[in-house]
């Protein structure tokens, strides 16, 4: 008499345990697989930036134009002169840390904040900037431009 209900009780309890275990296990697997899947999906933002960064092909940049790039946390500016010479500088204005830009018409580097001007050697030539822009070294290998800090 006692055995039969006892047995069914035990068996249902076991089923319940298995059921809960499966749920827990399944949930846990999801909790592992979701981060794993997200990790494996390549991030949208571009690859790492470094002291030796590649910022594109030299031939793709027109003469008398510029290109901004990221140097760690700070902006940098690459300039291709009319003669096709490449130059790179820190793009942080030495006056109040605004970001400078290339001014095609005047053929100089220009800061919009206070009209600071630098020549294409990074030398401060007009306006409030107290010192020149820090130049970066450029290395062109097989048309690929690398900036060395």
């Amino acid at each position: 008499m006692n055995e039969i209900p006892g047995y069914t009780e035990k068996s249902s309890r076991r089923d319940f345990l298995n059921y809960v275990l499966s749920i827990g296990f399944f949930g846990w697997i999801v909790a592992i697989l979701y981060p794993l899947y997200s990790y494996l999906v390549p991030p949208k933002s571009p690859d790492v930036d470094v002291s030796n960064i590649s910022i594109g092909k030299a031939s793709e940049i027109e003469n008398n134009s510029s290109k901004m790039f990221k140097m760690g946390n700070k902006p940098g500016i690459l300039i291709k002169t009319k003669e096709g010479e490449l130059r790179a500088f820190s793009a942080t204005c030495t006056h109040l840390d605004c970001t400078v830009q290339f001014n095609k018409e005047e053929n100089l580097i220009w800061c919009a904040c206070h009209n600071g001007k630098y020549d294409l050697n990074g030398k401060n030539i007009s306006g409030p900037p107290p010192s020149p822009l820090t130049p970066f070294n450029i290395n062109v290998q097989k048309d690929e431009i690398y900036i060395l800090k």
Binding site: P35, L36, S38, Y39, V41, P43, S45, D47, V48, D49, V50
Partner: peptide
């Protein structure tokens, strides 16, 4: 260094 930062900052999880 940058790639490790990339892993910790950019890559999900």
């Amino acid at each position: 260094f940058e790639s490790v930062r990339f892993i910790s900052a950019k890559v999900k999880f």
